[in-house]
Amino acid sequence: MHIKSSIISIILFLTLTFNVTALVIGSDDEEILIDANFSGQDLLVFGAFYADPSQPRDEKGDLLIEVVGPSEDVMLRKKKSFIGFWLNAYQVEFRDIPGFYYLSSTSEIDDEFLDQNNIGILKAKRSSEIDWSSLTINWGGLDSETDKKEFNEALIRTKTQESLYKETDNEIEILDGNLFKTSIHIPNTVPVGKYDVNVYLIIDEKITKQYSYHFTVTRIGIEEAIYNFAFDFPLLYGIISLTIAVITGWSGAELFRRFRKS
């Protein structure tokens, strides 16, 4: 499909200022289209600290870039050894968690600050607000705070392994002490829907400027059409699947019979 390059950059051009109020925005409301051949792409976010370029970097504060994907409900299962067999012994539902989360900063940001401002991969990572009523399978022995923490951490860990969650403090490039740039990898497993990009400028532990925009991720192509069809018209989908099977099976046998005769 995209012959020229698999990387399409969505460009956000913005300028953050200390004392000048204008925020210059290059583009927003962009769309990322995912088809069967989509192998992930990089989302480019860049801009400038629109202050006096000669000022030292320290006084310009820190930058925080956050990308939050659409919410989803997930099921986390834990296996346990049971007379030698590894079986799913626990199952917890997490509701309304981001399907994609990315946080990047120019320097290390402490958890307390993130908590206060409601930023960061799920509050679950630090607090243990896991809803134990959603424990739909429980083979016993789960009650302590450590267990809750273990589940929260496992959620972050598995999402991180799937490249869907990331927290980093060394990916924002500063050029000339004034321009910044970062590229965020969007893997092909991301959920479809609306994504929010938030850029914060932090000075003296306070958010002094914030700029937000969003983009959407859409799945396209025949595969997506099949997926939707299978869920929207299951009976018809089944009948079509069967028809294909009948025709292929029948014609295959016929073809070979004639081939053998000749």
Partner: peptide, 19 residues
């Protein structure tokens, strides 16, 4: 596959995406 201890005992599956 059933008997060897798995590297990751946790397993995550998406139930539904909320629009």
């Amino acid at each position: 596959d059933l008997l060897v201890p798995p590297e990751e005992v946790f397993n995550l599956s998406v139930l539904r995406v909320i629009f």
